[in-house]
């Protein structure tokens, strides 16, 4: 198993698409800091009362949100590029045990997703805070240590998206199909669900993957399109299910069909 994981890691790091998807996720943090600088200037011109309505957090959580999409693409490509190039046969000749091959891919994609997700989440928390300096934004009065756990959960959600991308890639065997499905789950479906009649919009909105991290950390749905009816443990279980159920389905299909 260690050999198979090491091989998958070598595969992933030796293609350019990995560097590109990770670079986009990282570069977006810089974009956030530029926007934070602009918000800081706006904040300076507001009255004390108006400042109550300008929180920084929506900007901060956009970092892991965009990273989720990038890492889901990375996860999908780690499977679909093998089908496109035909190296899936070579991979199976090297590691013929199919369950082991899927597991090795999942370990590598999850590890990369978690590392990148946490890095982006913390940078998205700290970067804008540095930019605003001493300005006491309404939601930035707590210490950094108080805020970080919530961002750690946002970072973990990135790994879930990466695994979801891998599973969809294995199931569809097509980058276009897998990435389209990811985008649907990432943002399109939550928008549709938001327009369901009451109370179904809040109920369905509470199990949308992009909103689960806020529910787990207790930050709440706030003004977002997501619902917030799930208690934290239930939200955590749903998030885990997003990672594992599609992956199990993909492994099931992968072990039963001809390569």
């Amino acid at each position: 198993m260690i050999d198979a994981v090491a091989a998958e890691w070598w595969k992933l790091r030796s293609v350019r698409s990995t560097r590109w998807t990770l670079s986009v996720a990282g570069a977006f943090v810089l974009v956030l800091m530029l926007v934070a600088a602009q918000e800081a200037r706006i904040w300076d011109g507001l009255t004390a009362r108006e400042r109550e309505d300008l929180p920084l957090r929506p900007l901060q959580v956009m970092g892991p949100w965009v990273a989720s999409l990038c890492l889901a693409v990375l996860g999908a490509l780690s499977a679909t590029s093998e089908y496109r190039s035909g190296t899936i046969a070579t991979s199976l000749i090297a590691v013929p045990h199919r369950g082991r091959l899927v597991a090795a891919k999942a370990v590598v994609v999850a590890a990369v997703g978690l590392t990148a997700g946490e890095a982006v989440a913390f940078a998205s928390c700290l970067g804008p805070r540095l930019v605003i300096g001493g300005r006491s934004f309404v939601d930035q009065e707590g210490s950094v240590l108080h805020d970080l756990p919530a961002f750690a959960v946002e970072g973990a959600a990135v790994a879930v998206f990466a695994l979801l991308g891998l599973a969809l890639g294995l199931l569809t065997r097509s980058a276009a199909g897998a990435i389209t499905a990811v985008v649907l789950l990432w943002h399109v479906l939550p928008l549709l669900v938001f327009h369901l009649p009451e109370p179904w919009n809040a109920r369905a909105g509470s199990v949308m993957l992009s909103g689960l991290a806020s529910e787990i950390s207790g930050a709440g749905a706030g003004e977002s399109i997501y619902g917030g009816v799930l208690p934290a443990p239930a939200a955590a279980a749903v998030m885990l299910a997003y990672a594992l159920v599609p992956l199990a389905a993909a492994a099931f299909a992968f072990t039963r069909r001809d390569a």
Partner: peptide
């Protein structure tokens, strides 16, 4: 085994292509 010589990831370097295969075994 060699089944299809065209089945290689075009963006990977030759050393890396053999490298991951070797590492897996």
């Amino acid at each position: 085994a060699l089944l299809d010589a065209g089945a290689v990831h075009a963006g990977r370097k030759a050393f890396d292509h053999l490298g991951w295969l070797a590492r897996g075994n």
